[in-house]
Design a protein around this nucleic acid. Structure first.
Lengths: 338, 338
DNA sequence: CTGTTAGCGCCTTCAT
DNA sequence: ATGAAGGCGCTAACAG
């Protein structure tokens, strides 16, 4: 592998000059520059990013840790992050935490050890409580993505969960639904808590009776499935809302267990949703987050923070969109016909 | 940030000793080691991976380039690669080519510039023909994943596409199907060509008339959709096979365009398939590749190649499994009843 | 068993 | 407009 020394020798200049033409960091006479460029061409020289990074203490790379890159929403975010990073000449180092606090810690440690210039984290539900504070002391700035954190002054990118759920509830209520089941899942995940809060907001908006609603929280998928299925076996409940893709899987399974059909017998709506929404039968009404844009926004925040480490932290909330599909249509129709 | 010099000073030893206890690379008296360890603890010292990599010309990282990390099969492969890499203490640098030759080239260049110790590549359909040969000259070894390449002596990990398609055909034929449509897609992708070859094998096995079969190749999704839909509007064709997930999307759309129902009116089977196969309606019969294991296998091959750069190249083919679901069931039933 | 020292390839003052 | 030279933090001979 050719080094700057080789190039300098061939071009008949000092390595200092080579460095400067490479980085455009000071004026160099035209003819000299051309000799250097020719020598670079001839030797096939490429900058050694490692040596460069070491000298400048800057790697031009950023790290992304997601809980599960397989889930469509996270995959899209990763996509957005990667695109934005590439657009700024940054390389992306990606790590999966698999929703596990221990692996998350290791992944972050690894990326930090690689000296990433900044870190974007969609943390696991059970992130160790001391993790975030300890990260504050690192030189690499941190941006939280999707899985936010209330108690710390941090840069964060999320979506307006509470408002979106409220909007969904309002729509469903206008269709005539009054008895809901919400599959809210792990309330340690802020986004899920917010969605649940939005549900309560919606209930109040619609003056619904709390006693008529079924709220399912926690991590026990099997238990959620069983409770929901049992509940649905009597036909008075008319709408089910799942607060994330995995919860939608659980809920749809429970609906099937109960022998209920969507949308004829129960309306169904979910957050985040599945990859090919128009191939699902029934097509699912979905509150969708602009995942790609969230990734892009996270990179912007990160870059600004790298520029200005001392500015005050910002939280960006993007709007979600309500995609109405047939899983919430039939009930309305039956109302009209009755 | 504390360096080895700080640690050495506090422990009252030379930096050389510190290095050796850190890497376990030579014996060091117990008491000395303990002093060093204590100093490390005290200073919160962490190795500088950059300086280390520069000195050893080894980064303990590998690169993975996939055409689309969003597709379930690739996401799983990436998962497998990442797990295996982590198990060997390697960091994974991930890049997306978005199925674009130019971006692929850039992504590879970036990873190579980061001095990854090895590279795993699931190349785009239209990889520049000179790309692979040029990679042969790099010091970082290369392993091809899923998207193989015939003409070069390379380490490769794929699946037995031809055999699997043949098995699928045999199954469908035994169900009574004799007129097929195969959506084969871009035949520049070796896996797709192999699947198509398997189709022809299957036809011969079953002594079917070539004139009765509809073979759809190429990249024009809209055209494939239109041709297939037109063809399906007469009811003599009874089975459709899609050779990849995106092609399945196209095919299912065309089936719907034609007003045909699966499985009552046409049987349908696909390769690779969707993320939640049991939530799809109808549940799709799928030839599934062991994507995770493919990723793991690719890492193994890569590590062995790093160990022994001169051994002769190996191609590993994993078996796919045929997951029978309801999308191919109804026709059999109607046969039985007729 | 331990210490001294020469770089790895590059950027960046400081001179000229 | 160009060069010389010192280190960034670490590993691996080479010497004791």
């Amino acid at each position: 592998m050719a080094t700057m020394v080789d190039v300098a020798r061939i071009a008949g200049v000092s390595i200092s000059t080579v460095s400067h033409v490479l980085n455009g960091t000071r004026n160099v006479e035209r003819s000299t520059r051309e000799r250097v460029l020719a020598a670079i061409e001839e030797t096939g020289y490429r900058q050694d990013t490692l040596a460069r990074a070491m000298r400048r203490s800057k790697t031009d790379s950023i790290g992304l840790v997601v809980s599960d890159a397989g889930e469509p929403a996270f995959a899209e975010m990763a996509h957005g992050v990667e695109n934005a990073a590439a657009a700024h000449g940054l390389t992306l180092l990606l790590a999966n935490s698999a929703e596990d606090a221990e692996r998350e810690k290791r992944a972050i440690r690894t990326l930090l050890d690689r000296r990433v210039d900044g870190l974007i984290l969609a943390r696991a539900a059970n992130t160790a409580p001391d993790l975030l504070p300890s990260l504050q002391n690192e030189k690499a700035p941190l941006v939280l993505l999707d899985r936010l954190y209330r108690d710390l002054p941090l840069d964060q990118v999320g979506v307006e969960n509470r408002e979106s759920m409220r909007m969904l509830m309002s729509h469903l209520h206008s269709l005539g639904h009054t008895r809901f089941a919400v599959v809210a899942g792990d309330t340690r995940v802020p986004a899920l808590t917010e969605r649940l809060d939005g549900f309560f907001d919606g209930m109040r908006d619609a003056h619904l009776d709390a006693a008529d609603q079924l709220v399912l929280t926690g991590t026990g998928d099997d238990q959620i499935r069983a409770v929901l299925a049992r509940d649905l076996s009597d036909f008075s409940r008319t709408a089910v809302i799942a607060c994330s893709t995995p919860l939608a899987v659980t809920a749809l399974t429970a609906i099937e267990d109960a022998g209920r059909a969507t949308p004829e017998s129960v309306a169904f709506a979910t957050f985040d949703g599945f990859s090919y929404p128009d191939l699902f039968r029934p097509r699912l009404t979905t509150v969708r987050q602009p995942a790609f844009d969230m990734g892009v926004a996270a990179v912007s925040l990160l870059l600004e923070r790298i520029e200005a480490p001392e500015g005050s932290p910002r939280t960006v909330r993007l709007r979600q969109t309500l995609e109405l599909r047939e899983s919430t249509e039939a009930f309305a129709a039956s109302e009209i016909h009755s």
